[in-house]
């Protein structure tokens, strides 16, 4: 589904991604872990098409198409979804209104008619239950004055509404209390099918107890320095990153 080959990217003059290669197949969940500043969010941003990042080499193919060639909205329309680490507050736009617009834009791209108002409401209701989010929250201005946890829940709600092929969750677990974490994780699990895939960026093993990854990768200084199964996450939880960093340094000598 997603094939990243030797991806290098920089912001302004700073090299941040220094050759990332990653293959993700349909039905898989990949966890990406790694110390602060290692480039996890940058990778997510580059995949979603945020401005300001310059890809200096490498390629990203998504279902056979060159993802880097697309605008951010086209990527979303093709089925990429990024749950933001820091969701933006947008005064004056309600989540409901925003979601209706987004869904219709995606449908339009796929050559479908606008969604029927009744169907939209039904869908809203269904997805709201999935992430246990309150209607009142959704009629307010998008993320404005939302608590940290509410914002994250709203991200997953939006993901549920848009039913992406590839969901990228950037630290969706940070800022969530234990109950919210379980709810959000359950939501993701229910959205999981054999046809879609998820990249879960996290610092904590805790989330991976709920969303069980098929692969765990460690990103360090812009490179994937180790990959393994879910056991790798357990090992990291126990021992931290030091031993991996030492391995990397030893290999470099």
């Amino acid at each position: 589904m997603l094939s990243i080959k030797n991806l290098q990217a920089r912001v302004e003059e700073k090299e941040i991604l220094k050759g990332i290669s990653l293959e993700i197949g349909a039905g898989e969940v990949h966890a990406i872990m790694g110390p602060n500043g290692s480039g996890k969010s940058t990778l997510a941003s580059v995949l979603a098409g945020r401005g300001g990042y310059e890809v200096t080499s490498g390629s990203v193919s998504f279902n056979g198409k060159d993802l880097l060639d697309f605008s951010p909205e086209e990527r979303a329309q093709e089925g990429v979804f990024l749950a933001f680490q820091y969701p933006v507050e947008i005064p004056g736009v309600s989540t409901t209104n925003f979601m209706r617009t987004a869904i219709n834009e995606v449908r339009n791209y796929r050559g479908q008619d606008e969604i029927e108002p009744g169907d939209f409401l039904k869908m809203m209701k269904e997805k709201m239950q999935l992430v246990e989010i309150d209607q009142k929250l959704l009629s307010r201005s998008l993320n404005e004055g939302f608590s940290g946890g509410e914002k994250k829940r709203n991200e997953i709600f939006q993901m549920a509404m848009l039913e992406p092929k590839l969901g990228i969750l950037d630290e969706t677990d940070s800022g969530l209390d234990i109950d919210a974490l379980r709810i959000v994780a359950n939501g993701v699990n229910k959205l999981k099918t054999k046809d879609n895939a998820f990249i879960v960026i996290t610092h904590y093993q805790r989330l991976l107890d709920y969303i069980v990854p098929d692969f765990v990768h460690v990103l360090y200084k812009g490179k994937i320095v180790k990959s393994g199964t879910k056991d790798l996450a357990l090992e990291l939880e126990e021992k931290g990153y030091d031993w991996i960093i030492k391995e990397v340094q030893a290999a470099a000598v």
């Binding site: 401005g51 909205e73 987004a102 869904i103």
Partner: peptide, 14 residues
């Protein structure tokens, strides 16, 4: 706000 613009775009809005 460029961030807000990207946020909307990232949901498929042109």
């Amino acid at each position: 706000d460029e961030e807000a613009l990207f946020y909307l775009q990232s949901r498929g809005i042109g």
